[in-house]
């Protein structure tokens, strides 16, 4: 079967909305209700965070959601249990995002096999170096038809972007500024970088993330790339939600309508 991420970008090249949520947050068993609501109300892609005790690339909001999820009892084993059978109802592509240590401890091949079994389409591991992926793990990820999605930043050289593009599958995750997640930086200052990315005519679609929080920032990002990723703003929205479905509906309608 063709990877769902590739199917998505074959159909839709503009304004793709990817929403990040931390698994097991705000409550342990909210993982599937949140995913269901995201699909229902128009998210094109779901990025599910695997909580980690030491999330280096994340700002305070996603860190706190990760800590909360761990306190709720979330673990990789629990997550895979929750995800068993989710493909009966959820058809949008789903990506797992997390740090390398828990994956390494689970066992990289066992992790990939489990992802394929439950129906995961792609993986983001920000602290897995490109060279190590290429020499050690690429064949395993490809064996299970899992797309590894790499990050590029405004400081990444053209040569390195091209190398990353050649190793990435699915799409490239363009970090909008050199920062941890959830930092407010002026999007206008980043337009030169977005223009540069666009002019490279990369082989993968590009989604822009970090600092996307509302319709204005989503539209700006979408003008330069195939779409954008929203994380911190969504976590803030659902943190104290009494009605997940309603909260997700309100949040997404504020972005794409």
């Amino acid at each position: 079967m063709q990877n769902r991420i590739d199917q998505l970008f074959a159909k839709k090249q503009h304004g793709v909305l990817n929403i990040y949520c931390t698994a097991g947050f705000p409550k342990l068993n909210d993982t599937l209700p949140v995913m269901t609501a995201l699909q229902q109300h128009g998210a094109d892609l779901i990025e599910l965070g695997m909580p980690f005790s030491d999330p280096l690339a994340d700002g305070p909001v996603i860190q706190d959601s990760s800590t909360k999820a761990l306190q709720n009892g979330m673990s990789l084993h629990t997550l895979f249990t929750q995800l068993a059978g989710f493909r009966q109802t959820i058809h949008v592509p789903v990506i797992l995002m997390g740090y390398f240590n828990p994956v390494l401890t689970y066992g990289v091949e066992a992790f990939c096999a489990k992802c394929a079994e439950v129906g995961i389409d792609g993986i983001i591991v920000p602290d897995l170096p490109m060279a190590e992926y290429e020499s050690e793990y690429r064949t395993v990820f490809e064996k299970y038809n899992l797309h590894l999605i790499f990050l590029v930043t405004p400081e990444t050289s053209e040569e390195r972007i091209r190398k990353i593009d050649s190793l990435s599958k699915g799409f490239l995750y363009a970090v909008s500024s050199s920062s941890t997640t959830g930092k407010d930086k002026n999007m206008n200052d980043q337009q030169a970088y977005f223009e540069r990315l666009k002019s490279l005519q990369l082989s993968n679609p590009v989604l822009i993330g970090f600092g996307i929080k509302d319709k204005a920032t989503f539209d700006t990002a979408s003008a330069y790339a195939n779409g954008a990723i929203i994380g911190t703003a969504f976590i803030k929205a659902i943190e104290h939600s009494q009605d997940i479905d309603k909260t997700v509906e309100t949040f997404i309608s504020g972005i794409i309508q």
Partner: peptide, 11 residues
Amino acid sequence: GGAYIPEMLYP
């Protein structure tokens, strides 16, 4: 050993 860093730290 190695350097398991996110791309933001690469430069």
